[in-house]
Write a protein that binds this DNA or RNA. Structure first.
Lengths: 139, 139
DNA sequence: CTAATCCCGACGAAATCACTCGGGATTGAG
DNA sequence: CTCAATCCCGAGTGATTTCGTCGGGATTAG
């Protein structure tokens, strides 16, 4: 996703390119990207010169969305999951008082993940190139 | 630990008792308790009528300590671990910008875990017993 | 002495993770 | 039209972790 964030606006990037850049096996990367596509975070273009690209700007993509797409609902424990669909009541729930702890932990994680967007992780362009002369002063 | 918190001050509890109360296999519970003992959270008494008990009051035991004892250092990823001993720099660290995210997540988890003590999870004694008549009004 | 209890190392089944494999479907370029 | 590039997708694999079992030794109260 950071890859795609960096290339945002320059057209689709193929799996082969990304795999080379990130030094990940192409077939594995494919699986990950399919999850991201299913979640609506990236769009694919099929056929020659196809590839993947973000469906929104990096600023608009919260890391919580990315993580949920890749790893499923945020849930430090089964009894404290994000997703009401998969809410699971364990058979100990009557006696068990620990659930409130996991809910707090989950909310802490969600908060941290919600507070960062993909843009926060896309490495800033290195200064020094001549098209950015005023950048240091103006920012 | 919640078990032991409830029994705090009433002498050691044996594995057999706790296993029955919590409906966990005794042999497995044993492993967990050994970790807690190694971490100094519980003390053991050997021999007949032996067992385990907390070494501090429930109020003095942070849940972060319990979790670290049972699950190891708090680390959503290897590159963002709590414990400087086991700090591991992954071979992608030069290109990878995601580390800051994991550090934030880790700190969020640590914060949540530090903010709760075992006492927060020990179920309050049920009211209605005659030695607590004024409790409802005074609280 | 003996029964209750902790101590401890080894083993095992099931789930998960990171990944591979093989082939089918779609599309742009020549 | 054809072909190469590319996405689509289900199935399989090996390492690791998790949750648990097993068997026996050491210690101590009664």
């Amino acid at each position: 996703m950071v890859q795609l964030g960096r290339r945002f606006g320059t057209g689709p990037a193929s799996l082969a390119e990304m795999a080379a850049d990130e030094d990940l096996p192409r077939a594995y990367l494919e699986q990950l990207v399919m999850s991201l596509r299913d979640a609506g975070l990236v769009a694919s273009t099929r056929g020659a010169h196809g590839g993947y690209e973000l469906t929104r700007t990096p600023q608009e993509i919260r890391m919580s969305e990315v993580l949920r797409a890749l790893e499923g609902p945020i849930a430090p424990m089964l009894c404290a999951t994000d997703d009401p669909e998969h809410a699971l009541v364990c058979d100990r729930s009557s006696r068990c008082t620990v659930n409130v702890l996991w809910v707090r932990v989950r909310d802490a994680i969600s908060g941290a993940l919600d507070s960062m967007t993909l843009a926060d992780l896309v490495p800033p362009r290195l200064v020094g190139s001549d098209d950015l002369q005023g950048a240091l002063i103006s920012s």
